[in-house]
Nucleic acid binder design. Structure first.
Lengths: 127, 127
DNA sequence: TATGTAATGTTATAATATAACAAACTGAGT
DNA sequence: ACTCAGTTTGTTATATTATAACATTACATA
């Protein structure tokens, strides 16, 4: 487990402090005071952070969240609920779903590398 | 079930003829000969077509596919495998997964509106 | 025909993401 | 310490994806 570089630390830190998902440009704006200037600096850090599963991308929102969910590091399965009213995103453990998907995809001769499950709807608070 | 408008027909037709997923701009380029000029014409058609589930968006690719999968109209659950080698996309039926997700999310007090499951990996052909 | 809803066309612009290339840093092996 | 390979960085420019705003037209139906 390699140490993070400065830019990676900065990006991760911003994401961890944020209550919400952030776009790459949201992150960039937060980090301008630290000297970051170009989107690529953020995107590159995000790429690495996703590689080591400290950050996930919400594909349907083009946004990023940090992941403290220990069980998820080393897993290739992430699942999120996204509330369409309040915007709250919640990562939840989907082990049963993961197992089922794996079985099914093996049945179809497909080798899973990474899975994104994004569920849009209404959260308990907003109902 | 309302009839489709001209633009919606055109967009759906292009997608159905295509062996692959297409970006909105891919579609636009195919339809320039029919007189379409602006991205919005395509995006608006796509929006409607997705609403009535004749088209799905692959969130992780920012691309669109048509859906002939009868069982899926009226469902709020779509699942895709995406081969990272050849790019082939396959929609598969994930009823079991859907049921499981529904049970689990209900447990967490979340009301599902729409779910995207996108699995990246290697297809049988490419293994 | 009046009326409301939906769809259209158009221009402009916002938001998201990557290409290309030179330079600096890092770590392992010698 | 030296060097080599690999990674990370900084930077400018550009590609790709998506929406805003607004005037206009089509269309069903009461």
């Amino acid at each position: 487990m390699k140490a993070l570089t400065r830019n990676q630390e900065l990006v991760l830190d911003v994401l961890q402090r944020s209550a919400r998902q952030m776009s790459a440009y949201d992150i960039l704006d937060k980090l301008r005071p630290e000297g970051l200037k170009a989107p690529l600096q953020v995107y590159r850090a995000l790429e690495k952070l996703m590689e080591i599963q400290l950050v996930h991308k919400l594909e349907s929102l083009n946004a990023f969240v940090s992941c403290n969910h220990k069980s998820c590091h080393g897993s290739d399965m992430t699942a999120f609920t996204i509330c369409q009213d309040c915007g709250a995103v919640n990562e939840f453990s989907a082990d049963g779903v993961a197992a089922l998907l794996k079985r099914q995809s093996v049945g179809e001769g497909f080798k899973i590398y990474q899975t994104a499950i994004e569920i849009k709807g209404t959260c308990a608070r907003c109902m």
